[in-house]
Computed example of a mutant assay.
Amino acid sequence: MRKRVPLNSVRAFEAAARNASVSKAADELCVTPTAVSHQIRQLEDFLQVRLFVRRNNRIDLTPEARANLLRISQALDLIDTAMVELGGSQEDLRSQLSVAASTSVTSLWLMPKLNEYMAREPEVDFSVRSFLTRKEAETQDTDLKICNWRCEMDCQVEPLLEEETIPVASPALKARFGGDDRALLSQATLVHVDRAYDVQEGAEPDWPRYLGEFGIARPDVKHGPRFNQSGTAIDAAKAGVGIILGRSLLIEEARRRGELVAISEPYPVRSRYYLLSPWRTEGRTALQSFKDWLIETVRHNDHVHVV
């Protein structure tokens, strides 16, 4: 006999944990924040454990809650899927698709290509979500995820592509240095990007690592404007502010339009991206068609390398 688990409280906890916010969970569940807090307290009383550490206006998961969040989310997903199938809406399930990628990959690489997929599959109800942190990515509820780290989630993980890191500048800035790439690397302003999460095995270089690899010494290697988003750093480079270490996936459109040009060789180590999807995809025609289209798109891309 199953223990009578308070499912409403479980849903409130999972939504608050996934969104890292009681108010966002309340919006998602169409209830008040007070109701969500009440349900969480009920679940804590039921389990006799603390689920959150509350600090001012912020909530953090306890280690025990964090360790079980993924399984709880997956269990709720299974219930939702079963209810859809029980209600005879399998056609809706086949035509629905949600995809997540980092904010920069979404805006700079995926979005310019989505028109092609949507023209091919006009019946698909498509949803795109973006994330800023690894924690946010791994707790988001989406059908597919594109990540540049080896995720340990319980799902199918497939290598998708590898990208290069290459110094780029605006054509005007390159012309200002007379097209002398060595002079650009030695004297031009260095634009830095502070990543919100660790890339795989530390493979992606920063300026000290890149310049050291090619034997260029600069006393000001850590100076220059810093950005916490690749998109704004790329905009700065296009405006001639300085040179950036561009990720080939993200600067593809800017290079194609001639807004950025390469000024040196790529860093010798590439970064790998992975495609995360559910183990079971039977009947999910939209999911499979998107995976097929994405792999086909990668194969025809000159700026990335197929794994």
Rank of each mutant, 00 (worst) to 15 (best):
A15T: 02
F131Q: 12
F131P: 11
V105F: 15
A100D: 10
N68G: 04
Y117S: 00
N19D: 08
V31Q: 06
L132Q: 15
L70F: 08
V53E: 15
I79Q: 04
S104G: 13
K113T: 06
T133M: 03
V99Y: 04
A65V: 10
E85S: 14
V36S: 05
I40H: 05
V53K: 12
D77N: 03
V49G: 00
S73R: 15
S98P: 07
A101C: 14
W109N: 02
R94D: 14
E64L: 05
A25D: 01
S102A: 10
V84D: 14
E91F: 10
V128R: 00
T34D: 03
A26F: 00
L86S: 13
R55A: 05
R66V: 10
C30E: 07
E123W: 09
A100V: 09
A26T: 00
R120E: 15
D92G: 02
A65I: 06
R54M: 08
A15C: 02
L78G: 01
A35P: 01
N56H: 12
R71N: 02
R18N: 02
K135Y: 13
S23N: 12
A65L: 08
S37M: 04
E123H: 14
Y117F: 15
A82K: 09
A17N: 09
E123D: 14
H38K: 14
E91I: 12
L69H: 08
A101S: 15
S107E: 06
E136I: 09
R41S: 11
D45H: 11
M118A: 12
F131L: 10
L76R: 10
T133G: 03
M83P: 02
P63A: 09
S37I: 04
L97K: 00
I79H: 03
A35W: 04
R58E: 13
I72P: 02
S73K: 11
S95T: 07
A20T: 07
R54F: 10
F46G: 07
V84L: 15
K135N: 12
I59R: 14
Y117Q: 01
I40Y: 05
M111W: 08
R66Q: 15
K24T: 04
M83V: 13
S107F: 02
F126D: 07
W109R: 04
S95G: 01
E116S: 14
M118K: 10
R71F: 01
M118C: 11
E136Y: 05
S107M: 08
E91G: 11
E123I: 09
T81I: 08
N68A: 10
R66K: 15
D60W: 06
I59Q: 13
A25G: 05
N57R: 15
T62E: 12
T62R: 12
A82P: 00
Q74E: 11
L70Q: 13
D80N: 02
A137N: 11
N19R: 11
E121V: 07
M83T: 12
K24Q: 14
L47N: 02
D80S: 01
L76H: 10
R18S: 14
D60V: 06
Q42A: 10
A137L: 13
E136F: 05
I59C: 07
